[in-house]
Write a protein that binds this DNA or RNA. Sequence first.
DNA 1: ATGGTGGGTTACCCA
Length: 262
Amino acid sequence: MRLATWNINSIRMRVPAVLDWLQRTQPDVLGLQETKVTDDLFPGDALAEIGYSSVFVGGKTYNGVALISKEPATDVRIEYPLADIPEPRLISAVYGGIRVYSAYFPNGRDPESEHFQTKLAWIDALGQLVFAEAQEGGGSPTPMALMGDFNVAPEPRDVYNPELMEGRIHFTAEERAALERLRERGLVDAFRLVNEEPGIFSWWDYRQGMFRRNLGLRIDHVYTTADLAARTTGAYVDKDERRKPSPSDHAPVVVDFDVSAA
DNA sequence: ATGGTGGGTTACCCA
């Protein structure tokens, strides 16, 4: 099973890029963030023409998330407001018995701002929600893949200059601790199970030639429950996509799982 | 410390 996550920074600006990428990459499920489109204008028809079905929730100008899949989604949940943030930042659905989330974590803006505290509260509320959903029904927990733009670089090897970035937005101790709490509860950074090198990033600021100089952050993640993580077979960031004309500021992150005997 | 770039029902916007 191939899962992918991509902050697309306007789906309408990049319909041809998404169609081309899907056809070349063939993910089973792609989570998109920052679709920046109302539901009536989501390009579901163009995706359906290449064999992908879509579920989505969005709004004008900001935010918006979607799940694009080969097999139709079941038990779709549009999950907001979360922690009192009334923005479409979370959607999930079940594919092959796995609940897959596309999540757009709040940016936080500045560690001194109220938006930063709201971000931390949102992450903790997300943790409460996903584990509660996994336990529904009382039997064995539903396997899960929580993927999206987390807006947090979890470790020093995930930022281009740990000393410079320490304490700045996306790399504060508080944000790292919030992700650590997700991992302590059983989620695993599947990417890092198979790809341990430093200097692998998923986002580069549009400004100051940051991409050209490879000054970025790894803030887009695929966190899975341990049962699924144990089946991780590969992971990569599709940096070529960020090189193209008019790219999103994020590159797609792809993680493969062998679920054949699951 | 600032601003650079780029998205979008172009805003004292947000990333």
